[in-house]
Design a protein around this nucleic acid. Structure first.
Length: 970
RNA sequence: GGGGAUGUGGCGGAAUUGGUAGACGCGCUAGCUUCAGGAGCUAGUGGCAGCAAUGUCGUGAGAGUUCAAAUCUCUCCAUCCCCACCA
């Protein structure tokens, strides 16, 4: 027989499968619906990227597996063709986007067809066709109807190259996601979707969702929930007002801030507002250096995001003279600054600065000489024993430097593992005196010069075995210099406990092993730093002694009682800016009426287009280039712009922005199910039967874009009664990146794999299997041209093996054990999306069958049938051909997946591993169910083992059932 | 700076409820067959020592827990990804 002729066979089955509508699910009658979805591609003129193909073949193999397991699998495909990417490409090559789209559509669908995925070709969607975007516009109307689409003027991301605004999610490190240009901030009025209303739900549902953990983490971070408090600071411009009775409600005289650390309010020594803050203009007349402040604010606003967020840059700011604030907990008057390290878009755009406990505030305070007040002392609860009494103690730790030779006095303890500085109780004494006394008692040195105290307190709670009680110690740290080496006598008792040694400065940090002393040492060597962890409150009035968590609660309660603040939750997530000043997208279905805007009671003049007037067709335009005016290209088409007001019937203007391409893709998975309905976007019954999607496989680059938007829109669709569940994708798995020869593929490097070439040369089955064999789907893979030969060889081997044994039916096969083991392995691997090891198992099995065939004719037709079914998800063309060759009339994909016999899978005889001290020394054949005693006996009787244990004492013998015996000897 | 992931032969990668490290494939070596093959078959293939049996070392580095560690704990190093002055 000849080698497998992929061209002939692929062509044949493409035709027959299409004729028989093999992959068309009956969406209404399906008994066991299984919605197998892959992320539809964004078509580019270069053709389908092999990275997409990588994801698709895995997804398809899973779909085919589910099909064989008896599910009615719906596996649709489409094209996400609207958008800046396609449009930019068309501009670049000087063609019209419509022509480019028509061409890429054909190319993409050809390629998707070639690879042999089981798509339902009767239900494709293309986002740029009016029968789809009509309903995208409908979606906009629904959002508007629900009050979730609104217009607002705010600071938005502007890409100067794409000449449009972008959503926050489309700006990566201040650069445009599409073209990599640096983005700017612009004040513009735009359409937004109120995704923030769903922030909590989007966050909470993640906890129970069956999604890749990595993607869940990315979404959690993006949503960015912070729990804290709003605090109101009274604004004052002269002292006498501090205690005057401003009405709380009159917020004009208050500056509100958000903080996650209300427990540190006593440490707030100044405030900062962002350059955009209204405080600056509201208080224009009172600000003495108004020109200077405004100048700073204007400069900051002009800066690009990249400049403003450059972390290496030193913090800058200007003190607002003439205004000050009052810290509500201690009535201290504190200065207010304007600085660009405070962001307008988060919290209230103003902060209370606590330099002792926030790195940014610390840096700023150092630079401008502001007060740094420690209010949270470091605290470690170091395994105190439960049920024991806890004694409070004030303790002093003394760091003594010998300036003669730069050494420091340390104690090496004999009774414990401590290596420390001299330390002891204060017992009500003066700190300095207590420190001197302690050094003298423990080491004898008595002539010390006090230099300074290091920080405030550090607390530790721990168990003292020698006293069988717990201690809650409050440590203070004093720094001395040694005047001379004169020593007093040291009691023997002290000497027995520890030895005093002088350690060189550079070795102290590694020598000391007591955590709190390490902090003190750092303060001495590196200076003060902001302590940002939790701790115990000090210098904090009514919060003193409380741990951070309790202090937060108590402070919030206090603020609420006084009307000075409240508990508050803040999210980083911001509303989704959906306007785009471009051509290639669905026109936003809104109309602006000047007359209505000015007539009383008509609101802002914006009206939705009535549903019956949809779609608003994208007008033909020869020159569709964006002009950067802030208006989209559609603004140039007068016929399009001029319309009548749906409300008053007067002249009105259409919105000329189109919507974000991610609006197209946030609902496509629902439309797949409803493509035949021309009178409605979605059919509730359909969605009820098929949603949510059972398995969704795609790239994690969409973690905060498509996947978050889809969840949001699905939630809204559920509230409107369309979607049956809150979450659209029951199970989502992210695939890894496909690279080539260890490097990322890119056009500029010229190392992009063109799948067409390889399909042509090696056949779709070989390409599919090779892509799935490269490694774990979740990890990605490394494509090497040399490897695909091996896969093609494997395909030929199977082809020839099947040919050889296809007609053998008489003798009973002896290879059942291996067959059933392989069924088990492949089944379990496919369930867990471990395609690579499933293929490896099949390869191993084929190797075995080949050898067995040569040896003793134990392989027959029944065995090959199982093999063909196991291969079907991976290599559909060859499997189908072989299945029919074996004499079947129906498609292999209408067959049932083979079941394994659990009895046959079990080994009766096993190789028992015998180890000595954990090292493999022998394996012996024993019955699988061998008892512990017998196994140990057999192990000890082994000649090889005897050699290893001769003359040694057997300490222990471990037995692991069905696996091993380990003999521990001495 | 924060979060996440990864690190195993010449290469892609298996093995993580702790229990025979290197499955499967590529490549390489030898033999057979063809002999024009980028074809097929058979055997071998982690390093070191040895003819061999076998021994010994070995999963980024170092320590620890354990009868037993690629797998668990700690410290460090490297690479990649995401977020980034988020109060």
């Amino acid at each position: 027989m000849q080698n497998y002729d992929h061209k002939k066979i692929e062509k044949k089955w493409h035709e027959i499968w299409a004729r028989d509508k093999l992959y068309q699910a009956d969406l209404d009658k399906a008994k066991k619906p299984f919605y197998n979805l892959m992320m539809f591609p964004y078509p580019s003129a270069e053709g389908l990227h092999v990275g997409n193909m990588y994801a698709f073949v895995h997804s398809d193999a899973y779909g085919r597996f589910m099909r064989l397991r008896g599910f009615d699998v719906f596996e649709p495909i489409g094209l996400d063709g609207f958008g800046i990417h396609s449009e930019n490409y068309a501009i670049k090559i000087g063609e019209h986007i419509k022509d480019v789209s028509a061409r890429t559509e054909k190319h993409f669908y050809d390629q998707l067809h070639m690879i042999g995925n089981g798509y339902d070709w009767s239900r494709t969607v293309e986002t740029y066709k009016p029968d789809y975007y009509k309903w995208t516009q409908w979606l906009f109307l629904k959002m508007h109807e629900k009050g979730l689409a609104y217009r607002k003027k705010s600071s938005v991301n502007w890409c100067p190259s794409c000449k449009t605004v972008l959503s926050d999610e489309q700006v990566i490190a201040s650069k445009c996601e599409r073209c990599d240009s640096e983005t700017e901030k612009k004040q513009m009025e735009q359409w937004f979707w109120r995704i923030t209303d769903y922030a909590e739900k989007l966050l909470k549902n993640l906890d129970v969702m069956d999604w890749s953990e990595e993607v869940k983490t990315i979404q959690r971070n993006w949503i960015g929930k912070s729990v804290g408090a709003i605090v109101k600071f009274q604004i004052s411009n002269y002292k006498s007002q501090i205690n005057s009775k401003f009405k709380i409600q009159n917020s004009k005289f208050f500056l509100e801030v958000f903080t996650t650390r209300p427990d540190t309010l006593f440490g707030c020594t100044y405030m900062v507002v962002c350059p955009e803050h209204p405080l600056i203009t509201n208080y224009e007349l009172r600000i003495k250096n108004y020109a200077e402040v405004m100048n700073y604010a204007e400069q900051a606003k002009k800066k690009s995001d990249l400049e403003r967020t450059d972390l290496a840059k030193e913090k800058t700011g200007v003190k607002i003279e003439g205004l000050s604030a009052v810290n509500p907990v201690n009535n201290e008057e504190i200065p207010i600054f304007v600085a660009d390290y405070v962001l307008a878009g988060y919290g209230t755009g103003a902060i209370m600065a606590v330099p002792a406990h926030d790195e940014r505030d610390f840096e700023f305070a150092k630079k401008y000489g502001l007060q740094i007040k420690e209010v949270a002392a470091p605290f470690l609860r170091d395994n105190p024993k439960e049920g024991k009494e806890t004694e409070r103690r004030d303790v002093v730790t003394v760091i003594v430097k010998n300036p003669q030779n730069n050494t420091f006095l340390c104690l090496n303890w004999n009774t414990t593992e401590w290596k420390s500085f001299p330390t002891g109780g204060i017992d009500g004494q003066d700190l300095v005196e207590a420190a001197k006394r302690e050094v003298k008692e423990e080491t004898g040195y008595k002539n010390l010069k006090f230099i300074k105290q290091l920080g405030d307190s550090i607390y530790a709670e721990f168990y003292r075995p020698h006293k069988d009680s717990n201690v809650m110690a409050n440590f203070k740290y004093l720094f001395f210099e040694l005047k001379n080496k004169e020593q007093a006598n040291v009691l023997r008792k002290e000497k027995e406990q520890h030895e005093a040694i002088w350690i060189k400065e550079e070795n102290v940090e590694s020598f000391i092993n007591v955590w709190n002393q390490k902090i003190a040492w750092k303060r001495l060597v590196y200076g003060d730093f902001a302590y940002c962890e939790e701790g115990i409150n000090i210098n904090s009035g009514f919060l003193n002694g409380l741990e951070t968590k309790e202090a937060k609660e108590k402070m919030i309660k206090w603020l609420e009682e006084k009307g000075l603040g409240r508990r508050e939750v803040v999210y980083k997530l911001r509303d989704w800016c959906v306007s785009r000043q471009r051509y290639w997208g669905p026109p936003i279905p809104m109309v602006y009426c000047e007359k209505c805007a000015h007539s009383a009671g008509s609101g802002h003049g914006w009206h939705p287009v009535p549903e019956k007037d949809l779609p608003i067709l994208l007008p033909e335009m020869d020159d569709f280039l964006p002009d950067g005016s802030g208006k989209g290209p559609l603004n140039k088409v007068k016929d399009f712009v001029n319309t009548t007001c749906p409300k008053c019937g007067g002249p009105a203007m259409r919105e000329t922005d189109v919507s974000d391409p991610f609006v197209d893709s946030c609902w496509y998975y629902m439309r797949y199910l409803c493509t035949e309905f021309t009178d409605k976007a979605l059919d509730k019954e359909r969605l009820k039967k098929w949603m949510p999607v059972n398995m969704y496989i795609g790239g994690k680059e969409h973690s905060v874009l498509h996947l978050l938007y889809s969840r949001f829109v699905n939630m809204v669709m559920r509230e409107l009664g369309y979607a049956p569940a809150e979450e659209p994708f029951k199970c989502f798995r992210a695939h890894g990146l496909l690279i080539r020869d260890g490097a990322k593929m890119s056009k500029s490097k010229g190392n992009v794999v063109n799948p067409d070439e390889y399909i042509e040369k090696f056949g779709a089955d070989a390409v599919r299997m090779y892509l799935m064999f490269l490694g774990d789907m979740r990890q990605g893979g490394d494509w090497r041209d040399s490897g695909i030969n091996g896969m093609r060889r494997f395909i030929n081997r199977v082809w020839n093996l099947a040919d050889e044994v296809a007609r053998k039916t008489t003798n009973k096969p002896k290879c059942l054990k291996n067959t059933h083991k392989t069924i088990k392995k492949v089944t379990e691997d496919l369930e867990n999306l471990k395609f690579n090891t499933a293929i490896a198992a099949i390869m191993e099995y084929v190797n075995y069958l080949q050898a067995a065939t040569k040896k003793n004719n134990t392989v027959n037709k029944d065995v090959v049938e199982v093999l063909v079914k196991l291969l079907a998800p991976f290599a559909p063309f060859m499997s189908e051909e072989l299945w029919r060759e074996l004499g079947h009339k129906e498609s292999v994909f209408k067959e049932k997946w083979p079941e394994y016999d659990p009895e046959l899978v079990k080994d009766k005889i096993i190789n028992l591993v015998v180890q000595v001290n954990g090292k493999l020394r022998d394996t012996i054949e024993v019955p699988a169910d061998i008892s512990e005693e017998e196994a140990k006996k057999a192990a000890l009787e082994s000649e090889k083992i005897k050699k290893w244990i001769a003359g040694k004492k057997i300490v222990k013998v471990i037995f692991v059932k069905g696996k091993l015996v380990n003999i521990a000897v001495k």
